[in-house]
Amino acid sequence: MVERIDGDALRVIRDAGMGSANPPSCVTRHPLRISSGEPDFVRRVEELSGEAVFACYQCGKCSAGCTFTSGMDLLPAEVMRLLQLGDERVLKSVSPWVCASCLACEVRCPKGVDIAKVMEALRLLDLRKGETGLRWREIPPGVPQIALVGATRKLTP
């Protein structure tokens, strides 16, 4: 399982996100090809998700409506901001692994960004290297197959 980001680093990230001097370069609803200056992982997330991370203008609606933030180290909008900044700390976040793909953010995003797809892309970066988000020995007894199939499809390679 990935490590949590420590509190001080998080505050720095939050401050940077809120007062950024560099507004998003583009606000299109469509996926855009980003410049070659962006880190590979950002481009990869855009390819896997089909979503434009630079379309996000940090309104915070996704974070406000997300019902799983109590288990997250980065709020959904912070995940988006770190991706925009090309900050690799987003790759260590537990938030994509706590996301339940409930799509509350997706229906509310005023820019049409499907953040659940971005979260899935971040999981896939690890899953496709063979890492897993599910510890088999810790699965609670008696969970039904609908939950097991869902969890293995989302959280294992």
């Binding site: 799983f68 288990g71 339940a100 793909s101 609670p140 939950a147 097991l148 869902g150 969890a151 959280l155």
Partner: peptide, 14 residues
Amino acid sequence: ECCGAYQTVANPGV
């Protein structure tokens, strides 16, 4: 709102 869905397997506390 979401009940937590399949996270009942990985994150039952949430």
